[in-house]
Design a protein around this nucleic acid. Structure first.
Lengths: 251, 251
DNA sequence: TCAATATAATTGGTATGACCAACGAGGTGG
DNA sequence: CCACCTCGTTGGTCATACCAATTATATTGA
């Protein structure tokens, strides 16, 4: 009673929705095209019309199709074209953006920062140092450090945007991977850089804070470059291994 | 056959979903709580069970509830608690953030901008001028203008973050309202400011682009201030009216 | 001949009722 | 007291029917 190849969860409509999304993604129904009628889909997928309706509503809520009464369901947006807006953001773009934005945020924060903020940021610097000794750390302290500075701007929008940039990293597996590699290869100087930023904030020196933040993120970009090379070397090694394997097999 | 007060679109399930979301938002069903059974909801809202199911699926797709077979639908997340992270961002914070970030973006864009970018931005400046003559315009051209500059940075992360800031406005009704008021009261100078930014980009002058962008957004902040006062005056007027009404009623 | 109109077919919207499967509370027997 | 069973509740799905909006087709009138 389910002639498609997907694993059956509890709810049929989810299977069907997945199938339809798949078909949208593979271009079977281009933007603007009309989906087959509900009754047709019901026959095609061997389910009842209510189930088809549930699946179509799932797509509709996600903005993938638009249902016109008496006419049909029309493709509005291909899956994956919009719902993951930052999917292809590279680690370099991300850090360059952070260099610009967090630099300014740090400058603004220097003019707004309170003693409580300073105290919190101090704690986070310690935490970062501690986290570095622990291999496999998740860089949570680093994130908190940067967000604490964003928070010190006393501007929710700025905080929000910077948080957004950090979240982008998570949505881009490539960027996350590269950062992880960079982190494991480059540990010591980071604490000094963070301390420099903290000192600038302590002094309420906007220009110094901007400079220190930019210097820090420029350093991150450098380490990313280094990690990229490392990765290239590893890839070459893997290729060589694979080649040897093919060779020995052929022999 | 619809005892609630919402206006009926074409689809009943949407009305019901809106009602349920409203009830979630007002705390009638806290996180973890179980919604009434489908059959109960059907009776309560005087709709059929399939319609109730469709509405619940709409909530489920949006991650607001989790449906457990044979048990019920449970609240996972209150609407607005996560999907609208910037709900309380004020128009001022937003524009201050844009001043900082878009200023830097403009500076970077000045070093990266292509002739095609320039041509597109020129068109958008014209479009903005045109849009200003049309009362009730949606400021779409303005948005496009700023995003085109963000795009000219050739940095997806920057583009993404700036787009995020614009989207924040939409999620904050208060900010959107204030902007609308400000726009209707302050039209003429905007074109000149946009032209100034365009000229700086044409000249590939990063500092000039940053300055022009900052000046433009500083001007926006001014108009927001003006609109705020206007609104305060209106509110005072309304209060006075209400007071008079209460007075005459008491008399 | 052609365009306006009337009619029929198609399509989504909703309702009803039925049956199944998963879950859970409460009773039952060990 | 605990394991087990039973049965009512709940969601999952289906089949069918009818309504309303849309669209295609046929008809009619100029």
């Amino acid at each position: 009673m389910n002639d498609n190849g997907t694993k059956g969860q509890d709810r049929l409509y989810q299977d069907l929705a997945r199938n339809l999304i798949e078909e949208l993604a593979t271009g079977q129904y281009p933007i603007g095209a009309r989906l087959p009628a509900e009754r047709e889909l019901a026959i095609k997928y061997n389910v009842s019309r209510p189930t088809v309706r549930e699946a179509i509503i799932a797509l509709e809520v996600q903005g993938m199709v638009e249902v016109k009464v008496g006419s049909g369901a029309y493709v509005r947006r291909l899956p994956g074209s919009d719902d993951l807006p930052g999917f292809n953001v590279s680690a370099f773009e991300l850090t360059e953006g952070r260099l610009l934005f967090e630099g300014e945020a740090a400058a603004l924060a220097a003019t707004q920062v309170t003693d409580e903020d300073i105290a919190e940021i101090e704690k986070l610097v310690d935490e970062i140092a501690h986290e570095n000794n622990d291999p496999g750390g998740t860089e949570q302290a680093d994130r908190k450090f940067h967000l604490a500075i964003a928070k010190a701007t006393r501007n929710t929008a700025i905080y929000n945007a910077i948080e957004h940039l950090w979240d982008l990293r998570a949505t881009s597996p490539e960027a996350a991977l590269l950062h992880e590699k960079a982190r494991s290869a480059n540990i010591k100087p980071v604490v000094d850089e963070h301390t420099a930023i903290l000192n600038a904030l302590r002094a309420r020196d906007a220009n110094a804070a901007r400079s220190a933040m930019r210097a820090h993120l420029a350093q991150v970009i450098d380490s990313l470059l280094f990690a990229t090379e490392e990765r290239a070397i590893e890839e070459a090694r893997r290729n060589a291994q694979a080649k040897r394997a093919r060779y020995s097999q052929a022999t």
